[in-house]
Amino acid sequence: MNNRKKMESPWIYAMQLSSVILMWVFVTGIITWIFNLLRLSIYLKDAQNATLGISLVVIPVFILLASVLTYVFIGMHKKTDEQQKNI
């Protein structure tokens, strides 16, 4: 466990962080797209209820998935007392 400092070079950490950020960019893209479709359906008066219903399901699921990934990322990199003892 004491070669942790050696392995976690700042470049690797930056790449890992950017992968999480990419996930959030992807999720934001999906949410933007769904909102665009919702706006379009209201403007064209074409199945607003269906669009709203689908948005209400899809958006929380994507946010949940991105949050789980972020939770794992933060959990992996958090410095707890236990790790301080090991190092």
């Binding site: 466990m1 942790r4 070079s9 690797i12 790449m15 992968s19 990322f73 992996m76 236990e82």
Partner: peptide, 12 residues
């Protein structure tokens, strides 16, 4: 290194 996200197998 990149993929493992710093996993060390601790309880946490």
């Amino acid at each position: 290194n990149f993929c493992s996200w710093g996993y060390q197998g601790t309880e946490h």
